[in-house]
Amino acid sequence: MIGSARYWREIPQRYRYEAAKCAKCGRVAFPPRLVCAGCRGREFTPVKLAQTGVVETFTVIHVAPTGFGDETPYAVGIVKLDDGVRVTAQITDCETGKLAIGDRVKLEFRRLQQDGESGIICYGYKFVPAIG
């Protein structure tokens, strides 16, 4: 399971969607990197991800990895945020059978996993259908 330090290190991304924009080519790295995947640039400015986007593809997980067994079936999708950045996350509060490519979704703060009954609770983002 995820230990405290490993969980804590990603808090700026998981809680606040902090990303890094390449000063040279403008590509946004989420999570931030030391080297730009687009141009190998090394200078970045901090940016915050857009919090709404469109479902590009998705699946509904019926056979889950350890720790997610209680939640099946659950949807996971790749969403293109309105700033063009793509992220993978669960899509929840929806009827999985009615989910479709192109659906508009927004980010919400949720519990992602927990280290058993006595370990730390890991928070982060999931997508939910956007109103309207």
């Binding site: 809680y15 209680d70 939640e71 929840t92 509060d93 919400e108 703060f109 949720r110 519990r111 992602l112 609770i121 928070y123 999931k126």
Partner: peptide
């Protein structure tokens, strides 16, 4: 609340 919602998650959304 769904299993992924608790006092903390709802507090964050309300506070936002």
């Amino acid at each position: 609340p769904t299993p992924d919602q608790d006092t903390i998650t709802m507090s964050v959304e309300a506070a936002r």
